[in-house]
Design a protein around this nucleic acid. Structure first.
Lengths: 339, 359
RNA sequence: GCCCGUCUAGCUCAGUGGUAGAGCGCCAGACUUUUAAUCUGGUGGUCGAGGGUUCGAUCCCCUCGGUGGGCG
């Protein structure tokens, strides 16, 4: 459900999934995120008379719509547990996305947005669309006046992308989704009804490629980019990067730079480094009395405390360590500028 | 503002750049007078080796064979570094420069008079030329002062001025804070305006910059001024000293007054890049102005302070999806038979905490 | 009828920020209360079965089976 939000700088602005509302209330048709725990985040669309369910029980949409704010805690009907209801931000959107393909994740997306220097009003080309993870972040950066032209060679995926972008409030005013094999057919695009060029030569501010043979798309990219326009290519394999980089140099791109960005996650916890003098001596049974006795070394009086009491007395040192399951290699990002 | 700058060994009068387009390259025709000519051939800026030798059949290429097969080729086994391979003397080179010889012509002279140049591999020749170009064919580009460019410049020259916030971390910080054209941002930072400028670049709606240093507002904004923003953009920024959050009348701006007096949870993004004070304390001082479900992003060179903040947010159930991460970014040299990571740039990259506020 | 979990060690488990962590069992040593108890140390793991998808690196999907919960 797309609502007119306001008129700003003479441009009609429409609500999208990231839009600000001062009352912060959840409405019917909103896409929201249910946060159960760090590795259990789900996207749902608010529809009357529907119910979300998880291990804690049922969460009726009717109890949310027009009643709850984003960012609040909600208990299940059985009161067995609770979840947090969040407004999607770009990181959470990406990590709760329904994946149809391998997708770009937040660290790479951030580099793409920043090094392409995307800003409101930009005309951007992207291929392939994939699951739309990057597309949504690009659109977030260029609305309300900018436009994304995204190309996908799989018919089903391009259709699903349109449905997603419409639900999120970006389609049709901020994005064109085109079903096309750009390696063979390039990026030039005409409006079907008027015959006017939507994407013409030297009209695009930035272009992003995520394709099997990127070098074949580089000449097409050069054609539609403006002078000074920026190109970014994502490829998982170094051989793809080499071919693409060479083609960029031959076409007339400069400042060709290739990066790999890895993100290392850290966990933190409390660890109690006790004094070795506070250890409890093992239980000793003596023949004389047959009784169990405890004997403590040193002048400590914490030896009688159990583990829980010790924990409450002193949480210990706050320690951090890298998580082993951090994501490894994703791909190489190459940036270049059209001369 | 007209002034001269020193670039490598040349003095350049910036006045001659007025009216030129951003992105243009210039070659210093004469390092004494600072006379400039526009670069019109992109291939002057790129690596010839990369353009000439195909990756696919690189191993079959005669010149590459020399690199990978020392028997067939040229290597430095017989090379003695006696500093005599250049036949032109220092005086002769200076004389050629005085005659007004162009950088390009001078480099050709150096190549012709080098005993070792022809014995070098193609790859090494390219590297030799690049070094000489830096000396005798000085080129530079006229760039627009953007967040990316300013961040790169300061990272290389004065990283402490921007709290060690490198481009890759700044990129993640802005994305984690969910910055977009509708954002209302509360900003606690000591980056001298780098961040404020980056937010204006994203065309955010409002910025409230809360200052904690001293007893009254005193801006440290020198980098912000370098963005050259027009006044209508600057209007979106409100600067406030933290003591003003407790006062009844803070500003002439009535909207901001209302927000502060009624303690409205108005802001939907919070960014902190601040090492001077306790981060938990600073957060607690402004959290009543943050909207539930707002995006929180904090950068710090040290993980300990972020761990404290995370612990505070977690145990008091103030936020979810809390994450502390460190970015490792490497640049790669990509050339036929010569692809490898550059010296790693992930020495002290800093850490980023991201979270979503809840109630 | 529909929805949501879960399945790894011989067995049984693992927390609203702890799924390569454990307990039981088993083995060894010490000890004494000796068809065994106690203590100490050790042993044991690649994830229910099958298929598919992504150019590609899986926090991807589907079907089937065991099992637990929820809604109507």
């Amino acid at each position: 459900m797309v609502k007119l939000l306001e008129i700003r700088d003479g441009v009609k602005t429409k609500n999208n999934v990231f839009s600000y509302t001062s009352d912060n209330i959840i409405r019917e048709g909103d896409t929201l995120v249910v946060f159960e725990s760090g590795d259990n985040i789900k996207q749902i669309v608010m529809k009357r008379n529907q119910t979300f369910q998880n291990k804690f029980g049922a969460f009726p949409h009717n109890d949310i719509i027009d009643k709850l704010q984003f960012g609040t805690k909600m208990y299940s009907k059985t009161m067995m547990g609770w979840v947090y209801i969040l407004r999607p931000n770009s990181h959470i959107y990406t990590s709760s996305l329904a994946q149809r393909t391998q997708i770009l994740y937040t660290p790479d997306i951030s580099q793409v947005l920043f090094r392409l220097e995307l800003r409101p009003g930009f005309r951007v080309v992207e291929s392939g669309t994939g699951s739309g993870s990057l597309s949504v972040s690009i659109m977030k950066a260029i609305v309300p006046t900018g436009h994304l032209f995204t190309y996908e060679f799989n018919q089903v995926r391009s259709q699903r992308a349109i449905e997603d972008f419409q639900r999120l409030g970006f389609y049709p005013q901020n994005v064109h989704v085109t079903h096309r094999d750009v390696l063979n057919n390039g990026f030039l695009l005409k409006d079907e009804s008027t015959g006017e060029f939507l994407v013409n030569e030297n009209t695009i501010d930035a272009i992003f490629l995520d394709l099997p043979s990127p070098e074949k798309a580089v000449p097409h990219a050069y054609k539609v980019l403006k002078r000074g326009g920026k190109l970014c290519n994502f490829s998982p394999c170094i051989e793809q990067v080499q071919k693409a980089v060479q083609e960029m140099a031959r076409q007339g791109f400069y400042e060709i730079k290739t990066y790999e960005t890895l993100s290392k996650d850290f966990s933190s916890s409390h660890h109690n480094y006790q004094s070795f003098k506070q250890q409890v001596k093992p239980t000793i049974v003596t023949e004389e009395n047959g009784n169990k006795q405890q004997d403590n070394l040193g002048d400590t009086n914490t030896g009688n405390l159990n583990k829980r009491q010790l924990k409450q007395k002193d949480k210990g040192m706050l320690v951090t360590a890298p998580k082993i399951e951090s994501r490894g290699h994703t791909g190489f990002l190459t940036f270049a500028i059209k001369f | 503002m007209l002034r001269k700058i020193k670039h490598f060994k040349a003095m350049v009068d910036l006045g001659q750049l007025i009216g030129k387009e951003y992105g243009q390259f210039f070659e210093v025709r004469d390092s004494k007078s600072g006379e400039l000519i526009e670069v019109t051939d992109v291939h002057q800026l790129t690596n010839q080796f990369l353009e000439d030798v195909d990756f696919g059949d690189a191993e079959e290429n005669e010149e590459v064979k020399e690199i990978i097969d020392p028997v067939a080729g040229r290597d430095n086994r017989d090379y003695v570094d006696d500093n005599k391979s250049q036949k032109l003397s220092h005086e002769e080179i200076e004389a050629l420069k005085k005659q007004g010889m162009s950088g390009n012509e001078l480099i050709q002279q150096l190549v012709q008079n080098s005993e070792t140049f022809s014995k070098r591999t193609k790859f090494s020749q390219e590297k030799y030329l690049r070094k000489k170009k830096q000396k005798y064919q000085i080129t530079f580009q006229l760039k627009k002062p953007t967040a990316l460019e300013l961040c790169n410049v300061y990272s290389q020259t004065q990283p402490a001025k921007i709290m060690g916030l490198r481009a890759d971390s700044l990129a993640l910080l802005l994305n984690m804070a969910n910055i977009n054209q509708e954002s209302r941002v509360i900003l606690l930072d000591k980056t001298k305006g780098l961040l404020t400028g980056a937010l204006i670049e994203k065309d955010v709606r409002e910025i409230l910059h809360v200052e904690f240093t001293g007893h009254q507002l005193k801006l440290q904004n020198e980098i912000f001024l370098e963005y050259n923003y027009k006044p209508d953009k600057v209007k979106r920024i409100q600067y406030l000293h933290h003591t003003n959050l407790d006062q009844s009348i803070v500003q002439s701006d009535s909207l901001l007054n209302a927000i502060i007096q009624t303690k409205t949870k108005h802001y939907n993004s919070m960014i902190m890049v601040h090492e001077d004070f306790n981060q938990v304390e600073m957060y607690n001082h402004i959290e009543h102005l943050i909207q539930p479900s707002a995006s929180i992003a904090v950068f710090s060179l040290y993980i300990q302070s972020l761990a404290e903040l995370k612990d505070h947010l977690l145990t008091n159930k103030k936020a979810v999806n809390i994450k502390i991460e460190e970015l490792w970014t490497r640049e790669y040299q990509v050339l036929p038979m010569r692809t490898h990571p550059n010296m790693n740039m992930h020495g002290a990259s800093g850490f980023i905490l991201s979270a979503v506020k809840v109630e």
